[in-house]
Design a protein around this nucleic acid. Structure first.
Lengths: 192, 192, 192, 192
DNA sequence: ATATAAACGAGACGGTACGTCGGGTCTTTTT
DNA sequence: AAAAAGACCCGACGTACCGTCTCGTTTATAT
């Protein structure tokens, strides 16, 4: 992937302009029309790219969605150690929902969850390659807490399951959790 | 709806045979081909019914899915008071996952969650009319616990949120929660 | 085909308006843009019909071409017995080329000949079912001459071959035979 | 074209290997898949050449077809004077059909005829530059006969028209003329 | 028993989108 | 400077479903 430059070929390079135009178009459609109107046809129309060009680089809708999502959410990858489980969890929820609410990333993630219900390969990729990366962030928070002596005897994976599930529940019903609701989840983890 | 009998007309009644054939066909397709292959066209083909007949009674896919789901899950509506929060929660998780795993209801519920991502009216109906009924079951369990003096100062709605979310998380990734994972969730509710 | 009415089915009848609109559109495109621009896509666009509707009734381009051609050329089916081989042949050539030049039928027939070069089923249909009908007209002229004692010992099928071939040669090169050229062919048949 | 060598430049010469590979590939596809599968894309794939290379040297499919056809049919250019119109015509038909049947040239010529129906420039080239060369062969036969006193008052061009037409008729319907059919044509020319 | 009106199967219809093939052109590196 | 090769935009392919429509047939009341 990163050693592409090593296998030099005499060939026209991929057009970055087109690449960006396609992502932009997809993202725009998601924002303005929503997932149900996100079609390869429409992306091609709006971006000015040809359908075959899109299929060449993103064989499934999932692939496009993932790339859009990744562009918007690099912030999440680092939750600073602030010495308190509660604070770090609050920060995690806060950053996540700030993103999901204020950018297209919420609609994008919702779309990914819909998409994997009808695309087995997408499901495979998402659960095997994508989710772990994102669970990892939360796991680090929990492990730091453990080092501090908290979370004795707790099943950290299960905690992550219901934390994520909590978020998915709101996302999929197009609602936003109240501070109190988030507070309850955090309390259920750090035992008050 | 219920006063249909009052406006008597000389008219042919709805055919129950066709009604059942359509539900059967939809359910079969869900089981054998999955959500992505569940189409009105296919249901009509398999059931022998005409497409307009299906549209007359179920204007959206959601309507069919809900009816299929309801047929399979009446059991869930009653969790007996066994005097222990932990036991009742265990029972709730156990019955739910037993259903989802061993009948078509898991695939059906998963399909509903996918469907509401692209059907605003379906989302409206599901969140306003359907989810409350199902949250109610869990709420009763929690309220019974509260009467026993447990769950002091807890946000019961939020607890239900992450309980359901936990289930959705597994359902949508086509996995099944381990006993340990369920145990962790239960523990997080009843505080060990 | 003609006893369709006997096997009555309760179904929406084929829309004649659409049927005619499609033929009209195809014919217009042929006339204005030529065979190379005759596409199902374009016919659908111009006629306002859906592509599937067109494919339902005319599985190949050939089928449309044949129907267009038939609409324009019923005149040819009857060459009157005027008592003279030469006169009847002249009449045949004259009517045929009058049609081919002044209506879309020339372009249509040319298109058919191009089409059968890449559509084996079209070729099969055209040679087995269509050409014979049209050769028959010429054959009747020759048989009438034979009854009058002309064309002794001649291979009538071969005569038809080169008569038709002569016409195809001009049609395919987008030229029109001169009177002298037609005269020469006629002379070669009736032996001056 | 021939003074290319005069404008010597530090330039890479056209690769004859590639040139031959392209013709070979085109010819192979014609033989094995037929005209409808003869595409620039496919030729590039099979020959290993890039599409632009092919377009540089053969701007249209016609150009490739002509070059393939020419490679196979140099024999035809000389029909010996054997002192008899009938014999020379027989020889002409015989050599032509022997070629068309036993090499890829029949499929090639058929393809050219299809191609000119959708390529105006190809038609122009074919009728103006190519057909005359081939008609010339037949014309020489007829002129020799005329010198011998035959074909008095006949329109030689028209005779060539229907001779060629006769051949095209069979070629385009993927049939082969019988000896009797050819005999009839020859008889119609030399008047028995 | 008979008229009536909705329910029904069948499937045609105008559409949208699918995923793919091929046509020509462009841009880059290699020779 | 030509060759080579893959990327590109584009148009069309033939198919699957969508949701609506128009048919002729069936059938349980309501007269």
């Amino acid at each position: 992937m990163n050693d592409k430059k090593l296998e030099l070929k005499a060939t026209r390079p991929r057009s970055d302009k087109t690449h960006q135009a396609i992502l932009k178009a997809a993202s725009t459609i998601l924002k303005e029309k929503g997932y149900s109107r996100l079609t390869f046809e429409g992306i091609a129309r709006l971006s000015g790219a040809g359908k075959p060009t899109i299929y060449r680089w993103w064989p499934t809708k999932m692939a496009i969605l993932i790339e859009i999502y990744d562009k918007e959410t690099t912030r999440l990858l680092t939750i600073k150690d602030v010495g308190s489980l509660k604070n770090e969890l609050d920060q995690w929820f806060s950053i996540l929902w700030d993103d999901w609410q204020n950018t297209v990333s919420g609609e994008t993630y919702r779309s990914i969850l819909a998409e994997i219900q009808s695309d087995p390969k997408g499901l495979e990729f998402f659960t095997k390659s994508y989710i772990p990366k994102r669970r990892h962030i939360l796991m680090q928070i929990l492990l730091r807490a453990k080092e501090r002596g908290e979370l004795e005897g707790r099943n950290l994976e299960a905690i992550i399951d219901y934390c994520c599930g909590f978020n998915w529940y709101y996302l999929l019903t197009r609602t936003v959790p109240s501070k109190e609701a988030v507070g309850e989840v955090v309390r259920s983890i750090d035992g008050r």
